[in-house]
Amino acid sequence: MSAELSFFDLFWQASLLVKLVMLILLLTSIVSWAFIFQRSKTLGNAQREMRKFEDKFWSGVDLNRLYQEISARQVILGMESLFCAGFKEFIRLRKSPTTPSNAVMDGTYRAMRVALSREIDELEKNLAFLATAGSISPYIGLFGTVWGIMTAFIALGEVQQATLAMVAPGIAEALIATAMGLFAAIPAVIAYNRFSHQVEKLENNYSNFMEEFSSILHRQTLSSEGTVREG
């Protein structure tokens, strides 16, 4: 009996539709785990790079030298991207003596907002798939379960004497479809909630940096304007 009710035997004995449901859920689970590992690595790197940059930024390093050092790289991500976008726009607007300080700061902040939006889009990449997999996988499995049980009872109605051995395989294959749906959904939901929280924390840190960096640049603008007036 145990051999007859093994997973692989039940899969091969299942109807074509239930097999298709199981394969869809298996593929969904594989893709979900691939995205889980990918996002975990990406968000972990983003957090480490953010802490590394903050330590360097608040160490009192010269902003011009820091900008030149970072902009020389081929790939700029995370908080460094916000810094470079804002500082580049700040320098460009400051070159025009007719540009008022408010316009300089508004342009700088907008540049950082655009960079922030791009960074968040990159961090949230593939999270929509995890959310979708977590929400629909149980229903796909339930559909397979309903179909398998319906098929089992239809077959049961065609015989005069019903036994448990006759209906057990059909019900078992149906329940396996539900189990596979949960197997695909639970890790996806857990990962989605965890990654969404991490992205939210990173976004808050990025936004706080934008405000603090804008204040630093604004003070520099006021200081330079005061020097010009005194001269």
Rank of each mutant, 00 (worst) to 15 (best):
A3S: 15
S6W: 14
L10H: 03
L10Q: 00
W12N: 12
Q13Y: 05
S15C: 05
L17V: 14
V21T: 05
V21A: 08
I24M: 13
L26N: 06
T28H: 05
I36E: 01
R39M: 07
K41H: 10
L43W: 05
G44T: 07
G44L: 07
R48G: 05
E49M: 09
R51T: 13
R51S: 14
R51A: 13
R51Q: 11
F53K: 02
D62E: 14
N64L: 13
Y67R: 07
Q68K: 14
A72R: 11
L77K: 13
M79I: 12
E80C: 04
E80V: 05
E80Y: 01
F87R: 01
K88M: 11
F90P: 01
R92A: 14
L93T: 09
R94Q: 13
N102K: 13
M105P: 04
G107S: 08
R110D: 10
L116D: 04
L116W: 02
E122S: 11
L123F: 09
A131Y: 00
T132M: 10
T132D: 05
T132G: 06
I149Y: 05
T151G: 03
F153G: 06
M166S: 11
V167L: 09
E173D: 09
A174V: 08
A174N: 03
I176H: 02
M180G: 07
P187T: 04
P187L: 01
A191S: 05
N193T: 06
E200Y: 05
E200W: 01
E200R: 10
N205M: 05
Y206N: 00
E211A: 11
F213S: 02
L217Y: 00
L217N: 02
R219E: 11
S223L: 15
S224C: 09
T227N: 08
R229G: 02
G231L: 15
G231W: 13
